[in-house]
């Protein structure tokens, strides 16, 4: 009986340590595998942050948001990361930095192009910023 308990504890311990090790080393997942929690137009998202940052932050920050809009600027950062700025009709836009953990089918965009991107809303820093973006087909 005692042997069985010890064996059980040992097995549970190994499994626990395995899960712990796995959790500890788990990579930030690809955005492509995550579901969007909110779908919104770029202009409306920006206006909500512009009108009341605290309320908009509580509503959107940390959430996976799918944003639709027209490309105002498209660029690639020095490390190659594509970045798209969606037009909001104001001085600032919705800035979408592409996910480093996803293989993107399309990485160049033209101003005027209509696009839906999903990413994690990080808040407003002049532009509303979305992190880890992928194009929504």
């Amino acid at each position: 009986m005692l042997k069985k308990i010890v064996l059980f504890l040992a097995v549970a311990g190994v499994i626990g340590a395995g899960i712990g090790y796995y959790m500890f080393n788990k990579k930030v997942p690809s955005m492509a595998s995550e579901k969007s929690e909110v779908t919104i137009e770029a202009a409306q998202l920006y206006q909500e942050f512009e009108a009341d940052e605290a309320a908009a932050s509580a509503k959107y920050v940390g959430k996976i948001v799918a944003v639709s809009g027209t490309v105002l600027e498209a660029s690639a950062l020095e490390d190659g990361t594509p970045k798209v700025l969606l037009d909001t009709g104001s001085d600032f836009g919705v800035s979408c930095e592409f996910d480093p953990n996803t293989k993107h089918a399309k990485t160049t965009f033209t101003p005027g192009e209509k696009l839906t991107l999903k990413g994690e809303c990080a808040g407003i820093n002049l532009d509303v910023q979305l992190a880890r973006c992928v194009v929504v087909q």
């Binding site: 788990k26 930030v28 480093p100 808040g123 407003i124 820093n125």
Partner: peptide
């Protein structure tokens, strides 16, 4: 200068 804390990307999910 300004950065959003939420926009710091890490390799490991738990660290972030």
């Amino acid at each position: 200068w300004k950065v959003l804390i939420k926009n710091f990307l890490f390799e490991k999910a738990l660290m972030q």
